[in-house]
């Protein structure tokens, strides 16, 4: 099984919707793929049909195999693992365990993944936390999601340092919500190509209203707007991810 971790230093870059749409695309192409939410916001499942207030998730420590099976049966399109609703104390405990034990989160996730999963897409919360390093270092591929703006550009050095330290096997920088009508965006992406040229993905996910509409309807963009450039771009992303995981 291969692990792809989605990461960004800055929040609001659209990491979660990228994870979900990528998962949907990979699933459509026949890969057994599960998207994992490790962000206490617990928002990932909402993209994929989860009901608000769903309690099942990675953060729960009292899950029985019955709970797990019930969750699996409830999956309608893409396989996903929510973070789960937990109390403040449960959250603190979660973070303590994740920081202190290198492989703790990893094992937890593995236990909950459906058997036969080929690709796990792990959505990390924004920013650098105590256990970010652990998650990144176990990954086969780290996908850094950012915007083509100055704020994202400014996070690149810190990201590079982090990635260098944890020795991820493959790294890709994906520009999300790209609006090529804005000269500043075009310039910033050009500048990014200058400093991380080898890892910058050659395509971008465009800023498409269809993606926001899809989320509002709890659909993937492939379902909601299959003709869009955004849907096409996810196809390109899925191809790129698979090729990279194969080592090409």
């Amino acid at each position: 099984m291969k692990t792809v971790v989605l990461f960004s230093v800055k929040g609001g870059t659209g990491r979660t919707s990228v994870a979900c749409n990528l998962g949907a695309e990979l699933t459509q192409q026949g890969r057994r793929c599960t998207v994992v939410d490790t962000d206490p916001q617990n928002a990932l499942g909402l993209h994929l049909g989860m009901s608000v207030g769903e309690r099942f998730g990675v953060a729960r420590h009292d899950l029985t195999s019955h709970d797990i099976a019930r969750h699996q049966r409830g999956l309608t399109k893409v396989s996903y693992l929510p973070f789960g609703q937990c109390s403040f104390e449960e959250l603190l405990e979660f973070e303590r365990q994740a920081v202190e034990n290198y492989a703790w989160l990893d094992e937890r996730v593995h236990r909950l993944l459906p058997p036969g999963t080929e690709i796990a897409l792990i959505d990390l919360p924004a920013g650098i936390r105590g256990w970010t390093y652990h998650s990144l270092s176990g990954a086969d591929l780290v996908l850094v999601v950012l915007h083509a703006d100055a704020a994202s550009y400014a996070t690149i050095p810190a990201t590079e340092e982090m990635l260098g330290r944890c020795g991820a096997r493959h790294v890709g920088y994906l520009v999300n919500q790209m609006d090529a009508r804005m000269p500043l965006s075009v310039d910033v992406r050009g500048a990014m190509s200058g400093i991380v040229s080898k890892s910058l993905l050659p395509f971008t996910i465009p800023n498409d209203e269809a993606m926001r509409e899809a989320f509002a309807q709890q659909k993937t963009v492939q379902e909601h707007a299959p003709d869009s450039q955004a849907a096409f771009a996810f196809g390109e992303l899925a191809d790129w991810v698979q090729a990279t995981l194969r080592g090409e």
Partner: peptide, 12 residues
């Protein structure tokens, strides 16, 4: 090509 329409949608 991609067409970007008024209203924020893109079309391949």
């Amino acid at each position: 090509v991609a067409l970007r329409l008024d209203g924020g949608h893109t079309i391949r």
